[in-house]
Write a protein that binds this DNA or RNA. Structure first.
Length: 725
RNA sequence: GCGCGCAUAGCUCAGUGGUAGAGCGUUUCAUUGACAUUGAAAAGGCCCCAAGUUCAAUCCUUGGUGCGCGCACCA
């Protein structure tokens, strides 16, 4: 009883969490190389690298918790566990963020600063951001191997990117060409199809007279160069017009020589069934123009201003130009009617929020449909040396079940995306990121991992889409293209755990890259978690000001409580709402666990040999129940049913072990009969051990602390973190 | 247009082919003897609607309603 006075009545995470974290770090067990030799079989998870654009939010916290649960469980199960951390340079987001800051503070743009200076400023920013993130991840109790930390833009990863680019180029999968791309005038770069977000907008829809026809448009400002008028070949209304027929029409800036084009892309029932086309600024028009070998004329420049083709409107921004043009059309009597309530969706940039202007630009692309020979394949359904496509790799790996997706329904969404997939535009007109490893000298083009020898070579100005480097993440982090031991042992990784919102951006691209470069899958399982929202179910956002720093919650309730409140009551792929009430509830549970330990320690007896104590059948049965429950929880963790596992353990620990078993056994603990007392004690300690082990993946701090208090391990390496499950 | 998800206690959400669960909230009582960050109990649910399958449906099937989301199209 003397000792017990030293234990406080409640678990204090502020002191204990820090102390426990130190014990773990000193043990070295986060690094699989330091685990006991009995840990043989590999189990690997690579942390989805958070963007170095700021701090982590609760969504990141959930991600870290789930992965830590998997890692801690498998470590205790005797696996050689690797959890490899890193951060993502997130080119677009990061550059935008820093540019904004500079503009706010100094009223300067990136062009004022120059490439070198901007990159220097970004480096300063990302270092700071990186340190914040690492600190946050550590506070979450992540048992992560910091000795292997990577950055998507560090030297090793840059080499991997250059190598990947070169290999894909040599295989003919990367090409450069003039294609219609999504141009973001605000960010000053192209973006991929996946980064475009459609926003519905009410706008005016103009019916304009175009010679004998009426055409309809929502964007009169693009119509200057429209010299082709297109209709469906089977449209009886326009049967008298022949494909290729020419006619003169009065248009915005005077007479224009129009050509009739017949194409099946036209929807006869939409509008008047006739349209004029703007091949430079519209994907469909571009395709029609390609089919009929028509001229392409640029109308709008990269800043959104009209070009000389617009005559008197030249140099005016399209936003300002539209009403002026409509005025002129009205004056000329070319406006037939205006539908004021037309709803159409405007393409905007998911990142910058600006309106996307399609443009024809010379860019680099990854060809997803081109056949190539896959030399060495471990992909089921694609034989070594056979011809395949990137699309096929992405499809077969999942369809054949080699990669499992939890929850299952995301498979459909994934396949649907693949079906609609076009070539991936990978070049960006940003300065921050992996510079494209291509050099030019006159007409000569050199693609290589290093710059070419000789004078006069100029490297491509553009950088690569961030997801190009992220796509390599599962193996670039393990040393690829070098043949490292880590790569051989830990790849493919066991689980990719991430949010469902980046299944296309990232999950699909990793499968693509790994398939092409390694002929293998990047991971065996994909677990997708939902978005963590606020108490009211709103997304966390800066504009709403509802952001929550996980560190503030940890400060108030402790890490274990935060972890439990994030993981309970959720199901895979579904969004969840976060409330502090829940966290408070689990803080109470941490205290409960602490007090269970405290109670047992208070009743502990020194100098007795637990091996000599015989237990009654009913006591044994109680212990067995705890063991069985632990195994059930383990199975649930293995099947990604974290909530179920946590719920069972919570309920058992509190409402069975504490409320019933301990209450019932109290008289025996007070008994004069030493045998009675010791057998009760042994049973409690045996059950507690099971409870601590099974709850450790969820609540690592308090369980480790109680273990230390109650079982008095003599060896500093005797920690619950590697206790045998 | 194609596809997906959700609908369960006052609120936020888990879950299951057979008497329905958690957190918070509400009511009553008890205890300062591990824990008031406690214990015991209670109130509160046509588990969205309809039909079907089944001995049995909140769960499976079909249809409907409401909400949310993804993709495509939008001249």
């Amino acid at each position: 009883m003397e000792e017990s006075k030293e234990i406080s009545k409640s678990y204090d995470p502020k002191i204990n969490d820090t102390e426990i974290n130190k014990l773990w770090e000193e043990s070295g067990f986060f690094n699989s190389d330091n685990l006991p030799k009995s840990h043989k079989k590999e189990y690997s998870v690579i942390l989805p690298p958070p963007n170095v654009t700021g701090t982590l939010h609760l969504g990141h916290a959930l991600m870290v918790v789930i992965q830590d649960i998997l890692i801690r469980y498998h470590r205790m199960k005797g696996f050689k566990t690797l959890w490899l951390p890193g951060t993502d340079h997130a080119a677009t987001a990061t550059q935008e963020r820093v540019e904004k800051d500079i503009y706010k503070k100094e009223n300067k743009t990136r062009y004022d600063l120059g490439r070198e200076e901007l990159l220097r400023r970004i480096d300063v920013f990302t270092k700071e951001s990186h340190d914040t993130i690492v600190n946050q991840v550590k506070k979450m109790g992540a048992s992560i191997d910091w000795s292997r930390e990577a950055f998507t833009l560090d030297e090793k990863r840059n080499f991997a990117v250059r190598t990947a680019f070169k290999k894909m180029y040599d295989a003919g999968l990367i090409y450069r060409g003039n294609r219609i791309v999504n141009w973001d005038p605000k960010l000053g770069t192209t973006i991929s199809d996946d980064e475009v977000e459609r926003v519905e907008e009410k706008t005016s829809f103009y019916y304009l007279k175009y010679g004998p026809f009426t055409i309809a448009t929502a964007r009169p400002e693009t119509k200057f160069g429209d010299k082709y008028v297109v209709m469906h070949p089977k449209d009886k209304r326009y049967a008298k017009y022949k494909n290729g027929e020419k006619l003169e029409v009065e248009w915005i800036n005077g007479k224009i020589n129009a050509t009739i084009i017949k194409d099946e892309a036209i929807d006869m029932s939409f509008g008047t069934g006739v349209m004029t086309i703007t091949p430079w600024h519209d994907k469909i028009d571009f395709e029609i123009a390609q089919r009929h070998n028509l001229d392409f004329e640029q109308i709008i420049d990269l800043k959104g201003k009209l070009l000389p083709i617009a005559g008197e409107f030249s140099g005016i921004h399209i936003k300002k130009a539209r009403p002026l043009i409509v005025e002129k059309l009205k004056a000329k009597g070319l406006v037939e009617k205006i539908d004021e309530n037309y709803i159409h969706s405007v393409a905007t940039s998911e990142r910058g929020g600006g309106v996307i202007e399609p443009q024809i630009l010379k860019q680099w692309f990854v060809d997803v449909n081109k056949k190539f020979k896959l030399e060495r394949s471990k992909i089921k359904g694609i034989k070594s040396g056979s011809k395949t496509t990137l699309k096929e790799i992405m499809e077969k790996t999942v369809k054949g079940g080699q990669i499992k997706i939890v929850p299952d329904r995301f498979k459909k969404i994934y396949f649907h995306w693949i079906e609609n997939l076009r070539d991936w535009c990978i070049s960006r007109q940003l300065w921050y990121g992996h510079r494209i490893p291509v050099w030019y000298k006159g007409e000569e083009v050199y693609v290589g991992t290093e710059s070419p020898k000789g004078d006069g070579w100029i490297q491509d100005e553009d950088t690569l889409d961030t997801w190009f480097s992220s796509g390599l993440w599962t193996f670039s982090t393990l040393g690829w293209p070098e043949k490292t031991k880590d790569l051989e042992f830990f790849h493919p990784t066991n689980v990719l755990e991430t949010g469902y919102d980046i299944i296309f951006f990232w999950v699909a691209r990793m499968i693509l890259m790994s398939g092409f470069l390694l002929g293998d899958i990047p991971f065996k399982n994909v677990y997708l978690h939902g978005i963590v929202r606020d108490k009211e179910g709103r997304k966390f956002s800066k504009s709403l000001g509802n952001g929550i720093d996980p560190l503030d919650i940890i400060e108030k309730y402790g890490t274990d409580a935060l972890r439990m409140s994030l993981i309970t009551g959720i199901s895979p792929g579904n969004d969840s709402n976060f409330s502090e009430d829940k966290t408070r509830g689990y803080r109470n549970f941490a205290t409960k666990l602490w007090n269970i330990g405290r109670f047992i320690k208070m009743n502990d007896v020194a100098d007795y040999d637990p091996k000599k104590i015989k237990l009654s059948a009913s006591d044994k049965k109680k212990i067995k129940f705890a063991v069985d429950l632990k195994n059930k929880a383990g199975k649930n963790i293995g099947n990604f049913k974290f909530n179920e596992a946590a719920y069972d353990l919570y309920h058992y620990a509190w409402h069975e072990f504490a409320d019933k078993i301990i209450e019932e056994v109290k008289p025996r603990l007070k008994s004069e009969n030493l045998k009675d007392k010791l057998s009760a004690l042994k049973m409690l300690k045996d059950i507690l051990f099971e409870v601590l082990k099974s709850l450790h993946p969820f609540m690592p701090f308090v369980t480790e602390a109680v273990y230390k208090e109650v079982y008095n391990p003599k060896d500093s390496k005797d920690l619950l973190i590697i206790a045998k499950w």
